[in-house]
Amino acid sequence: MSISIHALSKSYNGMPVFQKVDLELEEGGIYCLLAPSGAGKTTLFRILMGLEQADKGEIKGIPRGPIAAVFQEDRLCPALTAQKNIQLVHPVIAGEDLLRELQALLPEESLDKPVCEFSGGMRRRVALIRAMLAPGQLLLMDEPFTGLDEDTRETAMEYVLNHRRGRTLLFTTHHVEEAKRLGATLIQWQERERNWKVNK
């Protein structure tokens, strides 16, 4: 089922964040929101996640059940290991399978440490793996590759492509190259109208 956003508006204290957003996201598509800071990407994501209400407009076709998300912050439980952080959202996955997934993006010696001892880039990768393994049917990622260096960024993007399992992916970034690398349809910010348009 595709996701259709119709005439969606949101403002804070009378200041419009975005106005009359119309977007159509095909099922299984990869979309990239390209927008400057302050364009309300995070607000749009929060509305899609059901954490906030829009002022006007409607959204149809958000799959029921969990959403696999990478927030702008990592949002990991600091005292838990990478495994336990992932098992929190995906209790079924265990042992060997999980270790193999983690080793794809993390150094092996880190796996028995709590994530609060990780570097920022490592925590980011845990957040990415968590989203890719989570059972949600929709992937929403807010600047997922920020804080990763050149090499790990490439590995991380490949990991995302390999683990998407045909699910719809919507992500944000400041870098056009990331959108190109993932083969995403660009959704661009229109400053005058204060909304987004699919770049055809």
């Binding site: 996640m49 954490l51 969990p66 998300a69 949002r75 929190l88 959202v89």
Partner: peptide, 11 residues
Amino acid sequence: QLLEMAQVFHV
């Protein structure tokens, strides 16, 4: 932030 994460992921 963790509580929101838990809500979104249905923890």
